[in-house]
C-alpha cells in the first residue's frame, strides 16, 4: 500500500500499523522517515509535484507489481480569517490537500484498474461540515477532496476500486497545535461524542474501508465524533 505524509503524526502511525499487520508500505513526505522498519519504502517528495508522484507510483508498481491500497493522508492546514489569508497560503493548502490527493489517486488508480481491485482512502475533515470560522482555506480544500472522492468512486466503481474518505475530528498532532485551547473546546463541544479524536479512531475507519468485506462500500465520507 501507499501512505502519503508518513514522516510524522497520523501518517506515521498508519504506516507502522499496516506494517505490523503484514502489509508492505511505501510512504512519502517532504523529509526523511526516521528509523524505517523492514518492508517500508520511503520517498522524499512534495505530493503536489506531478513528476515525483508519477515516478514514485511507477517505482512501487515495478517493484511490487501491484498497489492494493492508497491512503492519502498528507495534508496541511491554514488557520486564519479568510480576509487575512494571502493567496499564496490558499494555493499551498490546495496544492497539498487537493492536487496531491488527486495526483496520487490518478496514478494509483491506473495500477489498481489493471488488477481490477484496489482501495483508496482520502482524508476529509469535520471542519467542512462544521463550517469552522478561521479555516476557510482548509475546509474548502477538504470539501474538494470530498467531491473528488464521491466522483472518483463512481468513475472507478466498475473497475473494482473503491474510493472513500475519513473525516477526523481534531487529533493531537502538529496540524492543530496552533489552535487556541478555548477554540478547541468549542469545536469538541459541537461533536455528539465530546472528546479529542485519537489516531486509533482514524485507523479503525481505515481498517473498515480496507476490509475485504467492504467491497460494496464506496463514495462515502465517514466523519468521526457524530458530525456530518
Amino acid at each position: 500500500m501507499i501512505v502519503t505524509g508518513t514522516r510524522k503524526g497520523i501518517g506515521r502511525e498508519l504506516a507502522l500499523h499496516y506494517l505490523a499487520q503484514g502489509w508492505t508500505v511505501a510512504g512519502c513526505s517532504r523529509g526523511a522517515f526516521d528509523d524505517p522498519p523492514e518492508h517500508y519504502r520511503h520517498f522524499e517528495l512534495d505530493v503536489a509535484d506531478e513528476r515525483s508522484v508519477v515516478a514514485m507510483v511507477n517505482s512501487v508498481r515495478r517493484e511490487f507489481g501491484r498497489i492494493d491500497a492508497l491512503i492519502n493522508n498528507a495534508g496541511i492546514a491554514s488557520m486564519n480569517h479568510f480576509v487575512l489569508t494571502p493567496k499564496s497560503k490558499i494555493e499551498d493548502v490546495f496544492s497539498t490537500n487537493v492536487f496531491g490527493t488527486f495526483l496520487f489517486c490518478r496514478e494509483a488508480a491506473k495500477v489498481m484498474m489493471r488488477g481490477k481491485s484496489g482501495r483508496i482512502i482520502n482524508f476529509a475533515t469535520v471542519a467542512t461540515p462544521l463550517r469552522l470560522e478561521g479555516e476557510a482555506a482548509y475546509a474548502a480544500s477538504k470539501a474538494a477532496v470530498e467531491s473528488l472522492t464521491r466522483i472518483m468512486a463512481r468513475e472507478l466503481g466498475e473497475a473494482g476500486v473503491t474510493v472513500n474518505a475519513v473525516g477526523p475530528t481534531p487529533v493531537d498532532t502538529d496540524l492543530i497545535r496552533s489552535v487556541p485551547a478555548e477554540k478547541m473546546e468549542r469545536l469538541i463541544g459541537r461533536q455528539a461524542i465530546q472528546r479529542m479524536g485519537t489516531t486509533d479512531d482514524v485507523i479503525n475507519i481505515c481498517d473498515f474501508f480496507l476490509s475485504p468485506r467492504s467491497d460494496f462500500v464506496t463514495g462515502q465520507v465517514l466523519f468521526l465524533g457524530g458530525i456530518g
Binding site: 506531478e50 513528476r51 508519477v54 515516478a55 511507477n58 508498481r61 515495478r62 491506473k110 495500477v111 484498474m113 489493471r114 468513475e155 466498475e158 473497475a159
Partner: peptide, 24 residues
Amino acid sequence: SLSLVLLVGEIEARINDAFDSDIV
C-alpha cells in the same frame, strides 16, 4: 470512456517499463 482509460493505463505502464520512463 472506461475502456479508453483501461487501454491508456495499460499502454502507459508497458511503455514506461520498456523505456524506463515516467511519461503520462
